[in-house]
Design a protein around this nucleic acid. Structure first.
Length: 603
DNA sequence: AGAGGTGGTG
DNA sequence: CATGCACCACCTCT
């Protein structure tokens, strides 16, 4: 592929006067497509600064100096709905440009997200370097000293060259990707991802407030309990070890490291003479041994303290006093978000001892509006499979697991079924979830603690109740193995590496694909829906002039923080927009989302 | 630095 | 033979 620019000597202009900047803007406004990139002193927009802002045409990169220029003048380019902005991981640049210049970039084509939808399911790098190699067979040498991180000196000519290349190279990558998006029918889903990315940037900038005092109260209480249990554990096992050790202060020291799986295995298998294959909770639970009981109690506390302790508070932003986690837009192969630093999608649900979610609170004068889809994946399964009885149950608003149990075990469904036959419902519920995950009979048997034969029988009864669910799941599995991909009705694809026939793990690998492909259309459609919802909700916030923004998305849930007098009305709108998004994909059963207004995340 | 084990979420 | 999807954080151990 021949490039429209010279890699060794890219055409660029480093702009340091307002007059030159103005004429550059005039030139740029003549284009339908530009590439945009920034260089910054670090990754965090609140505490780092922009060093360069590059906007390029196919042939030439205009490099603006944010220190000497008033960059408000690039607003007409960046906010123009007609001019396409090619960016690599645009969320990053969007955040800086919004924060430093008050400009909201519109009409983004993101090469990283495009690559994400083109390679979903494959573990491949989506860095600019990787894309340049893949599409252009060019190696981008990011030399040491090229970084702008913590930079205080003047930019070098080499740095400017690379800054120029970072924009110029986006054009040919964009051209190549476009043909693949077309070929794979991924244009629609790519456009969705592009529309979502600015919402994600805004959501990250918004962040969420944490009640630090309450958080530490919870942690300290847990620590007290943990330390008592930990001491008890050491005392109970001390006699099993030959000599007592003392620490510097003459206290008895710990016999083993309770956190060490290796030492625990030695303890159970060699000293307590109970053969266990691992020390996970499922195994310890059935062991019925006093030491196992203490260990389980310890683990309960230790887990919460280590995973959600001070570490989370250390991530509070110095500038804003809020948490600003990274939402990875294509973090999961199914199209779901993932979340990092910290992962707010795995904060424990509130419990008596550890009401962590109560610590996420609105700023004074605001309230949180929380909306989630109710039993969305069940609804998706009903809709995609077209199973009449499941559709009927969900349409009539019946308790789906009770209704399933009634069908399976030939009982009359009633509104008090749950109370009348709790044991039957306890069988039907895990099957419903398990099947969406491609679970087999032995897995189910293990789950609900019945024999393998009983497990098989239950699944049979389930499929007899919902025959189309079976044929749907089997078709998904078979098609994916044949095609090497599966897709959602929204057009999102997930690819699978087909194993060689002679692979020693062939059967296992095929079984993996089958399970993943049964789940993908369900989980993926949920992801498609919540992503449309994010765009709808963001647009509606602006349209309704609501003061506030989106703070969190947790797979089937959206959380906004808004001015308190607007919260009640807004929560309803937020739910409506979620429903509207869900109805793009679900037509045969109702989409349901409940609105909540609250001064804590969850109560 | 990376793997494996464990366990939190949807 | 293994046999429930999708993640991320923390711990130990090599």
């Amino acid at each position: 592929m021949s490039l429209a620019f010279d890699l060794k000597n890219p055409n660029y202009e480093f702009i340091k006067t307002q007059t030159k900047a103005e004429s550059a803007v005039r030139e740029l406004l003549k284009n339908q497509i530009v590439a945009v990139d920034i260089e910054a002193t670090g990754l965090e927009p609140y505490t780092c600064n922009m060093v360069l802002v590059q906007i390029a045409t196919k042939e030439k990169s205009y490099i603006f100096d944010p220190k000497t220029l008033n960059l408000k003048i690039i607003k007409p380019i960046l906010e123009d709905k007609k001019i396409l902005k090619i960016m690599q991981n645009g969320k990053f640049d969007y955040a800086f440009i919004k924060l430093k210049l008050g400009i909201e970039i519109d009409n983004i084509y993101d090469t990283m997200l495009a690559e994400g939808v083109l390679t979903a399911g494959y573990k491949v790098s989506k860095s600019l370097g990787a894309l340049a190699e893949k599409y252009l067979e060019i190696k981008l040498e990011k030399e040491f000293g090229m970084s702008f991180v913590n930079m205080h000196t003047n930019v070098t000519e080499d740095q400017l060259k690379y800054a120029a290349i970072d924009t110029l190279i986006l054009f040919p990558i964009f051209e190549k990707q476009k043909t693949f998006l077309d070929k794979e029918g991924l244009v629609r889903i790519a456009k969705l991802e592009f529309a979502v990315t600015k919402v994600v940037a805004e959501m990250e900038l918004m962040g969420i407030h944490v009640d630090k005092v309450k958080w530490m109260e919870i942690i300290n209480a847990l620590k007290k309990k943990r330390d008592i249990v930990s001491q008890k554990f050491q005392d109970e096992i001390r006699s099993l070890y030959p000599s007592n050790q003392f620490d510097l202060f003459g206290n008895l020291s710990n016999v083993i490291n309770i956190n060490s799986q290796v030492q625990l295995m030695e303890l159970f298998n060699k000293r307590l003479k109970v053969e266990i294959p691992a020390t996970g909770d499922a195994i310890l639970a059935v062991l019925d041994h006093p030491i196992a009981k203490i260990l389980r109690e310890y683990r309960g506390y230790e887990k919460l303290i280590s995973a959600f302790g001070e570490g989370l508070l250390e991530k509070i932003n110095k500038k804003t006093g809020r948490l600003h986690p990274d939402f990875i837009q294509l973090g999961a192969a199914t199209g779901r978000f993932s979340c990092q630093n910290p992962n707010l999608q795995q904060i424990p649900r509130n419990s008596e001892e550890a009401p962590f979610r109560e610590c996420f609170t609105p700023e004074k004068g605001n309230l949180l509006t929380v909306t989630d889809y109710s039993s969305m994946e069940m609804r998706i399964l009903a809709d995609l499979s077209g199973d009449e009885k499941m559709i009927k149950a969900l349409t009539e608003g019946l308790d789906i697991h009770s209704y399933t149990a009634a069908l399976m075990f030939n009982k009359e469904y009633s509104s008090n079924f749950k109370k009348k036959y709790p044991d039957l419902r306890q069988i039907s519920k895990p099957i419903g979830f398990g099947l969406m995950y491609g679970m087999g009979s032995s897995g189910l048997a293990r789950q609900i603690d019945v024999s393998k034969e009983k497990g098989k029988e239950y699944i049979k009864l389930y499929f007899k109740s919902y025959p189309k669910v079976r044929s749907f799941l089997e078709k998904m599995a078979k098609d994916a193995v044949r095609n090497g991909w599966s897709s959602t009705p929204g057009g999102r694809k997930r690819w699978y590496r087909k194993p060689e026939r002679n692979d020693p793990e062939y059967t296992k690998l095929i079984a993996n694909i089958e399970r993943q492909a049964k789940n993908h259309p369900i989980q993926g459609t949920n992801a498609d829906a919540i992503k449309y919802a994010l765009v709808y909700v963001y647009d509606r916030l602006k349209k309704e002039k609501v003061e506030g923004g989106i703070t969190l998305t947790v797979h089937d849930e959206l959380v906004c923080e808004v001015r308190e007098d607007q919260a009640e009305d807004w929560a309803k709108i937020q739910s409506e927009e979620m429903v509207r998004a869900g109805e793009l994909f679900i037509h045969k059963v109702p989409v349901v989302s409940e609105p909540f207004v609250s001064n804590v995340w969850e109560h």
